[in-house]
Simulated scan of single mutants.
Amino acid sequence: MVAVPVASLLPADSPRLAGVDPEHVDLLAALSGLPPVLVHRGTLRVVDGMHRVHAARLRGETSVAATYFDGDEKEAFLRAVERNLTGGGLPLSLHDREAAAVRILATYRQWSDRAVATAAGLSPTTVGAIRRRFFVPGGGGDAGGRVGRDGRIRPLDAAAGRLRASRWIARHPDASLRAIARAAGISVGTAHDVRARLRTGRDPVPPRPAAPGAPRPTAPAPPRPRTAAGKPPAGWPAVRDGLARDPSVRYTAAGRAFLAWADAHVLAPNDLVRLDGLVGAVPPHWRAAVAEAARSCAAAWLEFARELERRARAESGSPD
């Protein structure tokens, strides 16, 4: 154990998406005999103990007791997660552990779900779901992305990173840009662009620019969905009525559960007359947050629609 100047320490590559908790810092500042922080010897970056470092600064101390870690930066992140899971301090949230699992999977694709689950404090089932959601099966060791020397995940396919971010935003609408970027393995700037695009109803992946000198095609109007008869589809009430009469829906637990879920989540055209009253029920200081949550719900519905269409094309044998 050595005394290390506080001013020489670099911020941790922490698994905590929200960063340092000021209330926990105040609590630690009132205590004595805190354990030493863990510092990466090669970079002087804190591996574990940022709250203790901030507590020392709050007390006016110029140095802090520390021990050194000599592994590489990928191993340092694993150690940081381990310490935060078993060290008895402020626990990691579920969002923290899920984001850590994404990073671990991107770095150690050969690890089993059980091994990643042990490292991230999750169940193997949850890790398996994360692997299927964020990584291409059989894509090889770097299919999800490559981890640079700074520990950040840089996806080989920018579109894949944007889609991961859109899914993360749909599941965690209140997440910060830094949390979205870390979870999806993209830059904060890209996370900002993805969220801005979702807020305005656009695709999270921008269209590819045309090659230099190539004629710019006129963008066709978005096609309206059509039924087999070539007519625009009916609204949700008619679709629901048809679903409710379908034996594969009516007489299965999954079908009945879907109808009950959809009834609670679908906004039919007839509901538009109630929107003014619904908007008025939201307090002014909550309107921006509720609007963002509504856009996140819309993004989740868009992803749901795309998956339905993809499966319909696959079953009909039509090309994507």
Rank of each mutant, 00 (worst) to 15 (best):
M1D: 12
P5I: 00
A7Y: 01
S8P: 09
L10Y: 01
L10M: 10
D13G: 15
S14Q: 06
A18F: 04
A18P: 08
G19H: 04
V20A: 05
D26Y: 04
A29M: 07
S32A: 15
P35V: 09
V37M: 03
L44C: 08
L44N: 10
R45L: 03
V46S: 09
V47I: 05
H54M: 12
A55V: 06
R57S: 09
R57H: 06
G60S: 08
T62N: 15
S63G: 14
A66R: 01
T67F: 02
Y68G: 05
F69M: 07
D72R: 15
K74C: 10
R79I: 14
R79K: 14
A80V: 12
N84C: 09
G88R: 06
G88T: 13
G89A: 08
S93C: 02
S93H: 03
H95R: 14
D96S: 03
R97P: 07
E98I: 13
A99V: 09
A99G: 04
R103H: 13
Y108A: 08
Q110A: 11
W111E: 08
A115R: 14
A119M: 04
T126G: 09
V127W: 02
I130N: 03
R132G: 09
F135W: 00
D142N: 14
A143K: 08
A143V: 08
A143Y: 11
G144W: 02
G145A: 11
G148E: 06
D150C: 07
A158T: 15
A159E: 12
R164K: 07
R164C: 10
S166D: 03
P173F: 01
P173V: 00
S176N: 03
L177M: 11
A181N: 12
V188I: 15
R197G: 08
R197Q: 09
T200C: 10
P204T: 00
A210C: 10
G213Q: 05
R216N: 12
R216S: 14
P217T: 05
T218Q: 15
P220M: 07
P223E: 13
R224A: 15
G230A: 05
P232Q: 05
P232N: 08
P233W: 01
P233V: 14
A234D: 12
W236C: 12
W236Y: 14
V239C: 08
R240W: 04
L243T: 13
R245N: 11
P247F: 04
P247M: 03
S248Q: 13
R250P: 02
T252R: 13
F258V: 15
D263V: 06
D263N: 11
A264I: 06
V266H: 03
V266S: 05
L267M: 10
P269S: 07
D271P: 11
D276S: 07
G277Q: 10
L278C: 10
V279P: 00
G280F: 01
A281Q: 07
P284M: 11
R287H: 05
R287C: 12
A288K: 01
A294M: 11
A299F: 01
A299P: 00
A299R: 00
A300F: 00
A300K: 00
A305D: 14
E307M: 09
E309T: 08
R310T: 13
R311Y: 04
R313K: 13
R313G: 03
A314H: 05
A314V: 01
S316F: 01
S316Y: 02
G317F: 01
G317P: 00
